[in-house]
Simulated assay, not measured.
Amino acid sequence: MEHQIDGLVVDGDHEVATLLGRWEMIKNGALSRRQSIELMKEVVWPHGPDRRALAHIQP
């Protein structure tokens, strides 16, 4: 298992099974790519696309 700062090797049967189970729970609860994009659009543009709604955001 790795993250931005460090890594950890997990090789025990119980630990690996626990991590796989937790990963499956996270994966099963995640939205699809299309659903994620649609949700972001709804949050940014609750009443449809409007570039003025984003005028205050600096690139």
Rank of each mutant, 00 (worst) to 15 (best):
L8W: 09
L39N: 08
R34N: 11
S36N: 10
I57K: 01
D6G: 03
G21P: 03
E38H: 07
D50I: 02
R22I: 05
P59N: 00
R34A: 15
L20D: 10
W23M: 11
V9D: 11
G12P: 03
W23L: 14
Q35Y: 01
R34W: 03
V43G: 00
R33I: 11
I37W: 04
R52V: 01
R51H: 03
P46Q: 06
R51F: 02
V44F: 12
Q58S: 02
E42N: 12
L39S: 12
D13R: 14
E38C: 07
D11R: 14
V44W: 08
Q58H: 00
Q58C: 00
A53S: 08
M1L: 07
V16R: 15
H56T: 01
G7Q: 07
T18I: 10
K41P: 01
V43R: 13
L54D: 01
D13T: 13
E15Y: 09
D6S: 12
D11V: 10
S36G: 11
H47L: 06
D11K: 14
D13F: 13
K41C: 11
V16T: 12
R34T: 14
V16I: 15
E15R: 09
E38F: 05
E15C: 08
V43I: 15
M1W: 03
L20G: 02
V9C: 12
G21E: 11
L54V: 07
T18M: 13
G21R: 05
E42T: 09
K27Y: 10
L39Y: 06
L19S: 04
A30Y: 04
R33N: 09
A53H: 01
H47E: 11
L54G: 01
G12V: 06
N28T: 13
P59E: 00
H47P: 00
H56V: 02
G29H: 08
H14R: 15
K27C: 08
E2W: 03
R34M: 08
R33T: 13
D11P: 02
I26S: 06
K27N: 11
S32Q: 06
K41G: 04
L54N: 00
K41H: 08
G29L: 06
E42H: 08
A30K: 13
G7K: 04
M40K: 11
A30F: 05
E15N: 11
G7T: 08
A17E: 15
D13I: 12
E15Q: 15
G7C: 07
P46Y: 03
H3G: 03
S32L: 06
I57L: 11
G7M: 02
H47R: 07
R22S: 08
Q35P: 03
V10D: 06
L31I: 01
E15I: 02
P49Q: 03
L31K: 13
M1C: 04
E15M: 09
T18N: 09
H3D: 15
G48S: 04
V10K: 09
D6M: 02
R33P: 03
V10L: 15
G21H: 04
R22T: 04
S32N: 06
L54I: 06
V9A: 13
G48C: 05
E24V: 09
G21T: 06
V43A: 09
V10N: 09
V44I: 15
R34V: 12
K27S: 13
M40S: 10
L31M: 12
